[in-house]
Structures are given as structure tokens and as C-alpha cells.
Design a protein around this nucleic acid. Structure first.
Lengths: 205, 205
DNA sequence: ATCAATCTTGACTGATTGGTCAACTGTGTT
DNA sequence: AACACAGTTGACCAATCAGTCAAGATTGAT
């Protein structure tokens, strides 16, 4: 089956493809690409391995499909930052939305983290293309806000990186934080939300 | 060969073991545990695979040896934080030392990150044992500083997490930051150092 | 020089895994 | 009912990989 064709999907196709992607996300985000097997994914999706390969031609094809789905959602909150909005509100809102993304989609965050930690072999064109452009653009916006004295002056790129680092940490390193805190991650996110709100309030002031 | 015996190591043993660990660090930190092969490690170490297995009984044994080496170095800067020192200096110093660790030992940081992202299967006893104890102890120290009004009040655990997140990000996500900034990572670390210095100055005030 | 212990490796093995294929079944359209 | 096509799978294959083994090479103490 060629997933590139333009025919509308049948009921069974929709159902199986989404089951496969859900299963693959679960498996890839825990074991990484090389550490995951098609049998695991097929089993988790409730179908046979040949049937899985009927919908996706290769293991890589599944991985690519997952990553491209993810990258859109990933960019959205930053893209949505409004240059004409209130500087501090826009940034605080970005922090909140990014933390919500970690809370609600930790597997996606870990899938992405796995990919970057290992040198981003499959998404470097995305990183130095779409992502770089967007970040450069928003860094300029933030820099403009700093020029007007609406928020404190810092390197805007590193300010963006710090938001990423602080919010993703709770998803990517959840195993660590929850073992150290001895709490389930939902309560940790509640505290994290208060903490991040407070420090960014001070940073931006 | 049993690595548990107490005999002193020969010249050849020292040489080969350190070559193996160096090679394994390089390979594991890029490919993860399951993504790395003994052939890769043996080749990088300049020896044959059976010879590698003469020094370490299994792939896991190499991994465990690397991780335990790493965990000591990992704890050191936090353990070294002096309860009787100047609160702000001690914390700023911890940030600096942690960033230096990322700059000078990015492979170790990525090895650790790989392990945590995948749920910390092999080091959870360390996390909820030694690490938790140390973090709890230092959180109390920080909390004491906050009580005395020496630094601003926050959840001390999350303050520690934020230092980890911000400093490790530059090692673990180096692929991302260097592609977006279009600079080599050494220059990025110079800017990161200035940025982190500035924001923690504001956070702690 | 000898000899025992250490060190080294080519050639294997058994298990796992990504992917194929031919044959079979289910679906929906006429 | 009949038929074309979508969907499904057991059995298989070739490649890869962790780990073994027996035989040979090196080392260093005497």
C-alpha cells in the first residue's frame, strides 16, 4: 500500500492506521527507534506484523509519520505567539502552553527527545529549516519587546531555549522527577506550573 | 575475566579497559544501549569483539560500568554545595559547575539522558536512593536559606530541577541548539553562560 | 630459555529481527 | 449471487548481533 496516494481512506484503513500510530508512539517513546521491534508495535496495535507492513512499508515509515505529526503540534504554540499582543502575557502564555504540552503529550515529547539526543539524524532538515526560521522570527519579535522596555533584556534565542528546557524537562525526565519527589507526575506538574509562573514573572520583570 | 576480583590490574588491562570505556561512551551516547553493537565498540576501541568480552562479560556490564562512573561525577557538584557558604554564591556556583559539566562532558550527559528518557530501567535504585537522599538534604539547606530571606522563596526541589534542566539542555539537545543558532557549540556555551548567570541573578534576588 | 598466566582472535552458534510472499478471508458494489 | 479488490496472515528468508570456544600469540617472572 502506498500511503502517498490521494484516494480517500476506508473505515478500516483509518482505524488501523491510527491504531498503529498510537501503538508505535507508545513503543518508540519508551524504547527508542532501534530498541523497538515491529512485533512489539504490531502486538500493541492488535494486528499481525505483515498486516502492519501492509499499511506502512517499513519501520522507518512509521517513525517518520509519527515525527511529522508531532512536529506540527510542536511548532504551533510558538507560531501562535502574537507580535502585537502584550509582551509579558504572550511569553507567559507560551510557557503555560508548552508545559501543558508536556503534561498532556509526554510520549510525544520523549519521542522528540530521543531523536534529538541521538543527534537528530532524521529531522535535521526540519531543525535548520522550518524550526530555525520560526525561532529566528520570534526571537526578533521578543527582541523588539526588549527594545521597548516591555520585558527585561536577554539573548532572545536563549530565552526560548530556556522555556523549552524547563517545560520539556518534566516530560522527558519524568522518571527522574517522580522518583525523587515520590509523587505521581500529575501533582508534580501542579507544582511545576506554580514554580515556572513565579520564576518567569521575575525573569521578565 | 571477573572484574570483581581484587587483584591489581596489569598495564595491558588498564589500557584496554579504559580504551573500551572511552569507545563505549562514544557509541552508547550516540546510539543508546539497544542501538549500539559490540562490534562498533570493539572497533572503536581497536580490539576484537571476543577480546572486548574478555574484559567485560557482557554488553550490559560495559553499560553498568559506564553509568556508575558517571553517577559519581554527576552528584559531586551538588554534594559539594556548602550549607555554611553564602547562599547566592553557592547556588550560582552550582549553576556554573553544572554548565561546565555539560560543556566538558556532553557525552556523559547524553548517556544519562538516554537512560532517563527511556524510564531509567537500570538506575532507578540510584535515583530513589542516593540521588533522592542528596536532593532532599540539599533542598532543606536551600529552604533554610529562603527562610532567612537570603534568596527568594520557591519550591527548592523545583529550583534544583530547573538548574538541571537549563544546564543539561545544552548538552542533551546540542543537535537542536547548534542547528538553530548556526554556531558551533563552544560559542553557544559562552552565550549560555552569560544568559544563565543573568536569569539566576534575577530569580534568586 | 622456560613456562605458566595473560592476552588475543577467527570461526562459530542460536536467537532476534526487518521484511517478503503466496495464499486466504472479508467487504461492498452491482 | 458474483466479483473485484481491500484486508489479513502463517511461513519463510537474509541479515544482524550477543556471546562461546578452542587454539594460538604475548608477556613477564624465574
Amino acid at each position: 500500500m502506498q500511503r502517498s496516494s490521494e484516494k480517500p481512506l476506508t473505515r478500516i484503513q483509518k482505524q488501523n492506521i491510527s491504531a498503529i500510530l498510537e501503538a508505535a508512539l507508545e513503543v518508540f517513546s519508551v524504547n527508542g527507534f532501534r530498541g523497538s521491534t515491529l512485533d512489539q508495535i504490531a502486538c500493541a496495535a492488535g494486528i499481525s506484523k505483515p498486516n502492519l507492513l501492509y499499511y506502512f512499508n517499513s519501520k522507518q515509515a512509521i517513525h517518520v509519520a509519527l515525527l511529522s505529526e508531532l512536529l506540527d503540534a510542536w511548532l504551533y504554540p510558538l507560531r501562535d505567539m502574537n507580535p502585537n499582543g502584550d509582551a509579558k502575557d504572550e511569553l507567559m502564555n507560551y510557557v503555560r502552553r508548552k508545559l501543558d504540552l508536556s503534561r498532556n503529550f509526554p510520549r510525544e515529547s520523549r519521542l522528540f527527545a530521543n531523536e534529538i539526543v541521538q543527534g537528530a539524524p532524521r529531522i535535521d532538515t526540519f531543525l535548520k529549516g522550518d524550526l530555525k526560521n520560526l525561532v529566528d522570527e520570534k526571537a526578533k519579535v521578543i527582541s523588539g519587546w526588549m527594545d521597548k522596555g516591555l520585558i527585561a533584556r536577554f539573548d532572545p534565542h536563549h530565552l526560548i531555549f530556556s522555556i523549552w528546557a524547563l517545560t520539556q524537562h518534566y516530560a522527558d525526565f519524568e522518571a527522574q522527577t517522580s522518583l525523587i519527589m515520590g509523587k505521581d507526575s500529575d501533582k508534580i506538574y501542579d507544582d511545576a506550573s506554580i514554580f515556572l509562573e513565579a520564576i518567569f514573572e521575575k525573569i521578565l520583570a
